[in-house]
């Protein structure tokens, strides 16, 4: 049992308490296919509560894998993952559910059920707070439905509540997914390229909405993102990943200019401390 699981929330729900640190990852290694593919290679960092952290990097650099370790959609091969003071790989199933209800996850592909109403998708965010299976929005208690309406209103979709979710545009569907995450009353929101499948204009709107809601609710945010400008606009801190390693970890201030960030996407090491392994080694980077 984790000793950190102490305080009781209003709805008789156990909430983990972790002091000032929301996430602490140490020497995290993840390999797939019996070690033939290394997705994460000794990643370490920690995130204080309330921080807005953006993780950037090329596709395949390990951003999603990293985020998915934080609510145990993946289990680490080596190293430790501590979220809200809980040792994530060691949690029992019941404890894991408690952790997950405190972590909102926003997916690139929305991962909402397209053929049910928006309100039902938002309500499913409250499943961790209630017992038993639910089929249809009317099976949720009324006070939760009121709450779901409020969350839908925050993302500007209260008038769509009873509409089928797949009749909405991509940006609206992602806003429903955000409302679902907020419905969990999370301490942390993990967003895995939340705007990668949206056009630039809508991307900006959805991103701003997500950040504003999280600031209002004092939620810690870890977000992977491709749009460097979008990230520099509101992030407190930037982490760059390449080939499963942290190659940049810097607060967003005057010292961090656009070019230095863009280097994460290039072959050069943005910290300048060591030269890129591709250039040093004999391996031809094209093949």
């Amino acid at each position: 049992m984790n000793s950190n699981m102490v305080s009781l929330d209003d709805g008789n729900v156990l909430v983990p308490d972790s002091g000032e640190t929301a996430v602490r990852v140490k020497d995290l290694v993840k390999t797939f296919d019996n070690g033939s593919v290394t997705a994460l290679d000794g990643v370490s960092f920690s995130v204080p509560k309330g921080q807005l952290l953006v993780i950037i990097g090329l596709s395949g650099s390990g951003k999603s894998t990293l985020l998915r370790h934080l609510n145990r959609l993946h289990i680490p091969t080596e190293g430790s993952v501590e979220v809200l003071g809980l040792d994530v790989p060691a949690l029992t199933r019941a404890e894991l559910r408690i952790l997950r209800r405190n972590i909102g996850f926003v997916f690139q592909q929305f991962n909402i059920v397209g053929r049910v109403t928006c309100i039902e998708n938002v309500l499913s965010g409250a499943l961790g707070r209630i017992r038993g299976p639910r089929i249809g929005a009317m099976m949720y208690p009324k006070w939760l439905r009121v709450e779901a309406f409020e969350q839908l209103d925050r993302v500007g979709l209260a008038d769509r509540a009873w509409q089928r979710t797949d009749t909405l545009s991509g940006g609206q569907q992602q806003r429903v997914a955000i409302a679902r995450s907020l419905m969990q009353k999370p301490k942390i929101v993990l967003a895995d390229e939340p705007v990668a499948s949206l056009d630039p204009e809508i991307s900006g709107q959805v991103m701003d909405l997500l950040v504003q809601c999280c600031i209002e609710d004092e939620i810690t945010v870890l977000c992977s993102l491709h749009q460097v400008d979008l990230a520099l606009g509101w992030a407190h801190r930037l982490i760059g990943l390449r080939d499963g390693k942290v190659v940049l970890d810097s607060p967003v201030d005057e010292s961090l200019d656009h070019n230095r960030v863009m280097d994460v996407y290039r072959e050069l090491d943005p910290t300048g401390a060591k030269r890129d392994e591709y250039i040093d080694s004999d391996v031809d980077p094209i093949s």
């Binding site: 952790l99 209800r101 996850f105 997916f107 059920v113 961790g128 639910r134």
Partner: peptide, 27 residues
Amino acid sequence: GPREGVASTGAGPMQDLSTGVWSQMVP
């Protein structure tokens, strides 16, 4: 995907079955 979405809200196995699996299978 939607099942993952439901699982990461902290839903239990029966809730996963009803909200994550069955709601997609109704048609």
